[in-house]
Structure formats: C-alpha cells, structure tokens
Simulated scan of single mutants.
Amino acid sequence: MCPPRFFTVDYAINPWMDPERPVDTDRAMAQWTALRDLYLSLGHTVDVVEPQPGLPDMVFAANSATVLDGRVLGARFRARQRAAEAEHFRRWFVENGYRDVTMPRRINEAEGDFAWTGSLLLAGTGFRTDREAHAEAQETLGAAVVSLRLVDPRYYHLDTALFVLTEATETVPASVVYYPDAFSAGSRRVLERLFPGAVLAEEADAACFGCNGVSDGRNVVLPVEATGLAERLAAEGYVPHFVDISELRKAGGGPKCCTMEIRK
C-alpha cells in the first residue's frame, strides 16, 4: 500500500475524476489508514511504499505490479500523468529483495487489469491495458491467461468490475464477484462458463465500487455503500467488512485499487 499523502485530483483520466470538485487530502489519509488498520486487524501484513510529490495516484498501488510466486511484473501506464509511478514501485521491489522483476513493454496496469484466481489469470482490456500485454503477462508470470473485454468506461479497469472471492485449490474451484454489464457479450459468456456459481453484482453495487472489493477467502472488504452485495456475500458464508472510500473514489479508486496483493 501507499499512503495518499499527496492525494489530489488535478487531472481527469477516468470518468470519476473532476478537477473542479474539492478534495480533502486529510480525509483521504484517514480513509486509507482505516483500510490499512482493518487489514492488520484481520492478521495480514502490510508493506508501505513511500508516496512521492506530484504523483497523487500512487495510493492506487494495485496498478503498479502483479506478483505471483515471487515473480514481479511491473507496470507501464497509459496516462502520462502516472508514468513515473512505475519506477518507484520497481525500485521498492528491488530494494526489498525481489530478484525476478520484469518491466513490461506493452501498456499494462497490473492488478488493475489482472486478477489471479488460483489457477488462471483473468486479464482485462478495453480501456487501459493492451490486449498484447496479456501474452506478455503469461510469459513472465507463467500463468494461463483469460482475456476479458471491458465496455463501460466507468469500469475502466478489471478490478472495478470483478474481484476474486476464493482462489481455486486442487479440490475447490475459484469463486468471484462481477458486474455483468461492464463486460462485452463474449466476455460475459466466458465468465458464465468459468464461474457458474459467481455472485453477480447489481448496478448499485458497481456504482459505489463494490466490485473493487478485497477478499482473503473469508473476510471481504467493501465500500460502506455496498450493502446489497454484502448481504448476498454474508448469505454465502463470507464476512463483510465496510470501509469508507468516498474521498478516494473521487479519483476512481476503492479498496482493491489501494491494495497490491503480493503472492510470494
């Protein structure tokens, strides 16, 4: 994670961003701190990358690397305003002992568009990550990739429209949450085939970034407004935990955007 010490909205690179709308950096910091503290209370380890002046979106750490079995595939951002973030995160991995670090040649916004299911890497395209970056991720990470096309600009990253509830094991298939209308017709059919028991998010869930959740297989972190989705997940045996991400959402981010999951 990366604290939003320099958080602001000075430019618009997604439909959620409006530079004319006031932003409260202190409130963003408080919301981020509450999210970090929730992870710690649930027994997780949180590594912190230092934010840099002039890079207000560094808080969205999920966009900066994909880590699987200790292999790190860095990011290459589409928007010039975020381009410098990639090097700061690359340096963090090198300085913290990661030796297998690859920087992509194609546009690749990391866990913003890559979701590991335990057996497959779901890969989004349509707005940010290049379709060709999916093959690059497969070669670098050694994971079979399934490409999914996003069609609604409000859900410009895969992680705004889908998250993994439980990773697959040898005996149990993966489970996911997703918002069908964010995907092309063909991608919806792929998701239906892969995850027939998926929890389908409704429009209200997606609009508050409910599909930008984070799950450890039991505990699910959701925006406080995602009450309908929380009820359905509780009925499936999961334990929802709410966080306020209203300030961070002004830049198009939620719990998952703030969270890079490191799989060693």
Rank of each mutant, 00 (worst) to 15 (best):
P255H: 08
D216G: 09
A226K: 08
E225H: 14
E247L: 06
T169D: 07
V151C: 04
A235D: 13
S184N: 07
A137R: 14
R154H: 14
R131G: 03
Q138T: 13
Y156N: 12
R131L: 15
P255W: 06
G186W: 06
L150D: 08
D152V: 12
D159P: 11
H241Y: 01
R249G: 05
R154M: 11
G228M: 08
A182R: 01
A201M: 07
P153I: 00
G228N: 07
R189Y: 05
F209Q: 10
R154Q: 13
V221Q: 02
V177S: 02
A143T: 12
T140V: 15
V177D: 00
G228E: 11
A198W: 03
E236L: 10
V177L: 04
V177K: 00
L248W: 01
A204D: 15
R131Q: 12
H157N: 09
T227C: 07
V243F: 13
P173C: 09
R218E: 10
A137Q: 12
N219Q: 13
A182F: 02
S184H: 04
Y238D: 04
G217L: 11
A161E: 04
E247G: 05
L158M: 09
D216F: 12
I245H: 04
Y178K: 01
G186E: 14
L194Q: 10
R149L: 13
H157S: 02
V220S: 11
D244K: 04
G253C: 02
P196A: 10
A207T: 11
V243A: 09
